[in-house]
Amino acid sequence: MSDQVETTTPVASGGGADPNAAVKMVGKGVNVYYGDAHAIKDVSIDILDKTVTAFIGPSGCGKSTFLRCLNRMNDTIDVARITGTIELDGQNIYDKNIDPVQLRARVGMVFQKPNPFPKSIYDNVAYGPRIHGLVANKADLDVIVESSLRRAAMWDEVKDRLDQPGTGLSGGQQQRLCIARAIATAPEVLLMDEPASALDPIATAKIEELIDELRENYSIVIVTHSMQQAARVSQKTAFFHLGILVEYDDTSKIFTNPTDQRTQDYITGRFG
């Protein structure tokens, strides 16, 4: 296999991060254990606001695990144990005073497999605002649902069938519905765990377009197996390997001139 791979070309919309972007989340010396297994080893990272950060790396490297630490989704797994600190706007989210439920309202999540609730499209999007009491009346809720669906670029597709079940949509539509559902809660950070891996190329393109638009308002962290996708949508890229954060830099730098040999090997397809 030659060193010439297509991942070196499409660094167009990606590239470097805005040098003025503020730091949104900070991980310091994070370790994660699943029972006896040491899944994340001493990871420290700064995640910028209004920036798309991609986590790449071979399967089992810990990128999804680390992503789930950012909104404490690992709390739902009994055997998971975490040390170190992760700060959101300067406050440690693993602090005793922090309620994971409130945290997850600020740090939303979109999953690998589209998982709309078996409810109507409207109820899916209205779910977060309802449980968090974000709205006082139905009219306000209508506004949130519409704007969320518009920002997820699917309002025109579903506006006539908001009462139809969300599970009846196509895979790509379901995933965009899940994104609309996540942004309806008005989070500050949006975590996406391989959001396009179950979708066809056309649906994937739509999701990527959407991610690029959402960057204006949110800090987005995306885990992906596709290096082309990371190159296309992200400004910062973190390469994980065997639970270690090997290299974290501007996407253009990672894909054109990586410092570490392991990063070089991975992006050129030598392993992974």
């Binding site: 939303g108 998982n115 609730f117 977060g128 899940c178 809660t185």
Partner: peptide, 12 residues
């Protein structure tokens, strides 16, 4: 995945 989806939105 449905549970995760709900927890991920900040539901108890």
């Amino acid at each position: 995945s449905l549970r995760d989806g709900s927890y991920g939105l900040g539901a108890t």
